[in-house]
Amino acid sequence: MAEALWGGKALPLGLGVGHFTDLEARTGCTVVLAAEGAVAAADVRGAAPGTRETDLLRPENTVERVQAVVLTGGSAFGLAAAEGVVRYLAERGRGFPTPGGVVPIVPAAVLYDLGRGRLHRPPGAEAGYQAALAVGEEVGEGGVGAGTGAVAGGVKGGVGLAGYLLEEGFRVAALAAVNSLGRPFDPRTGRLYAEGLLAVEEKALLPDLSRYQGREEDHRFPYLPGQNTTLGVVATDAPLSKAQARRLAIMAQDGIARAIRPAHTPLDGDLVFALALGDGRGVDPMALLRLGAYAADALARAIARAVLLAEGFLGVPSYRELVAG
């Protein structure tokens, strides 16, 4: 059996996570920093994505390693946050070597949170730079970074982190920024869809549902249509090839479908990045199978943690507030 790990603790994978949070504008960005480089891939399942430099992550393309990944609010405006992370890395000589100097490779993906704060101030280059500077020992969760203005199926969304230590000794972790059209909980019972995957200590975060008034589920979802996305980063210390990292991202997408219903809709931009910190030589198919299975579980847990730890704001209740009655 794999051991459940993390949940807010620093990632022991050679990666760092930093947030920039703007409460006035109700937006922000999150940087996953792999300054020494990580084999990277991506998988897009939502029909409304906003991305930067994801084409180079295809297995057939030349560049294998990235130095960071950015998840950001601000819709298309927020892609500018990646420029600040590029500057941060360039100042430290990290990037793809070229005759003219290193070029940091920083893919990014956005979620829609415009109009949820008092100001229109999408994350820009300075926000990305500050998020990179903020990389530290602990990983903030809930309504921080890219999750600052996130809304998940009518309750407050946010950022969550979870992971596993596998029997083989490999570790896999998932970071989620949850801003979904679909609900993370069953409206008939109030229970989180991913509740069964939570570790024992995480179940202590679950609210009392004794006063919850259940209702029949429908699929009209009138809340914020066209303003949705769930973003994920799954990372491992296994030495995956670029093609295997792509398979890890594909399998991890199942975690979104386990934790949010419906997922991968015409109105979401759901996307998962995969990062592998090993030397890229590859692992055997059974090891990859187990990594992918636990990556999906980790992403589902991360989504649940994001919703459990987020606090509501004006007009948007937290999940705990909604179901507690």
Rank of each mutant, 00 (worst) to 15 (best):
V151Y: 06
L165C: 13
L161D: 00
V144M: 10
A132E: 03
L89T: 15
V172Q: 09
V106A: 08
R121G: 05
E137D: 11
D113R: 00
E64A: 10
G95M: 10
R87N: 13
G157V: 10
A146I: 05
N179R: 08
R94V: 14
G95H: 08
V102Y: 09
Q130S: 11
V86L: 12
L165P: 10
G84R: 04
L166Q: 05
R121E: 13
A81M: 07
I105R: 06
P123N: 01
G145W: 04
G158R: 06
G73V: 01
K156P: 01
P97C: 11
S75K: 02
T148F: 05
V102M: 13
L161I: 00
L166M: 12
Y88T: 08
A134E: 02
G136F: 03
A81I: 01
P122S: 07
P99D: 03
L133V: 11
V70F: 00
G74K: 04
A152I: 13
R87C: 13
Y129N: 05
A146G: 14
E64D: 09
N179E: 11
L111K: 00
A176I: 04
V155Q: 07
F96Y: 15
V159R: 11
F96G: 14
Y129C: 03
A131G: 02
R94A: 06
G101R: 06
A68T: 12
G117M: 02
G78T: 06
P104H: 08
H120I: 14
